[in-house]
Design a protein around this nucleic acid. Structure first.
Lengths: 187, 187
DNA sequence: GTCTATAACTAGATAGAC
DNA sequence: GTCTATCTAGTTATAGAC
């Protein structure tokens, strides 16, 4: 509900009703709407982080570039279909009260640093070109994935999306002129 | 205000106050909050479209790939620093009332089709590899740009961002193994 | 733990003076 | 065109019964 109507656009009555209870009852579990949304965002980031970490661990023996690709697939899955928590996180984290957002950002930083490590490892392995600002590259790639939350009901499977994204991220959309010349030269 | 607090999070009193007027006075100009936000979104999309079109026209003689790069730079500028309208558009267009969003989407489709044309032209020119779903590629690239609206006050200049993004989009972040083998083979 | 009732306030919108 | 005043309905949050 937060994802589709925004933080202020959802009332505690709406939430209570969806949970088959009454607004007053929510106050037994949460002291305020702010605390409720904070719990939602915290759950979202932990769930995403865990899903990505699992995918990365499963690709442990594929090298740093392989692990990064696995992370990209897992994060995209989280955003697109795994859970409404991820969608809410991405859509409302910029429009919640300042103090909630500050606490959330603190909590979310660990996830960002985890991604930083994935990119660093891949570069140290020699899989990423060295003429890029790696932080900027990371933010842009994460942005491409995060924005899928704004897509209408998707026409594509998560697999086709992640495979296309991984191709673009690692190889680009361009026809590699140098490569084609080299290939021609070889024949 | 819509960008930072969401559609429902901003009251007409807030808006009126920022415009040095009173809430009641807004009703002389707009019949409802819905109509007001619809005007904001319409202005935003037209402004963006115009800015990108200007940049593309200025790059008219650079080939389709050059025009696409110019569009990427211009769109990113629009999102990051040109105007609050663009930020509002990107942040709230998914959380406005259904009928407003439907009318807005209709209006926004022209901009999406303009981007489709840019990508098609670049591929027809031979600048984009043919093994990609071009619509998907377009949405992912636009997503990377759009998500910059969620970045905190940027540590990077728009120029460094667009240059990095254009590099990633066209060439990828990967070290091109095939290329290096080919180059070695040539020597 | 959940309920009803309600307090205290704010929302969008309207009416009518100027 | 803008103002003040106000209506109606909805908001978060609390109090107290069960």
């Amino acid at each position: 509900m937060f994802a589709s109507k925004g933080f202020a656009g959802v009332s505690l009555r709406d939430i209570a009703s969806a949970a088959d209870t009454k607004a007053g009852s929510l106050y037994y579990h949460f002291a305020s709407k702010d605390e409720l949304v904070e719990a939602v965002l915290r759950h979202a980031i932990e769930e995403m982080h865990q899903h990505v970490r699992d995918a990365v661990d499963a690709a442990a023996d594929e090298g740093a570039a392989g692990r990064l690709k696995a992370a990209i697939s897992a994060h995209t899955e989280s955003v697109m279909e795994r859970t409404d928590y991820a969608k809410a996180l991405l859509r409302i984290s910029s429009q919640i009260p300042d103090d909630v957002r500050e606490r959330h950002n603190k909590h979310a930083r660990a996830y960002g640093e985890y991604w930083g490590q994935l990119f660093n490892d891949a570069r140290d392995e020699g899989a990423i070109r060295v003429d890029l600002d790696l932080t900027l590259a990371r933010l842009l790639v994460l942005g491409a994935m995060n924005w899928t939350v704004e897509w209408p009901a998707s026409l594509w499977s998560p697999e086709s999306i992640t495979s296309t994204l991984n191709k673009i991220v690692f190889e680009g959309i361009g026809t590699d002129d140098v490569d084609e010349e080299a290939v021609r030269a070889l024949h």
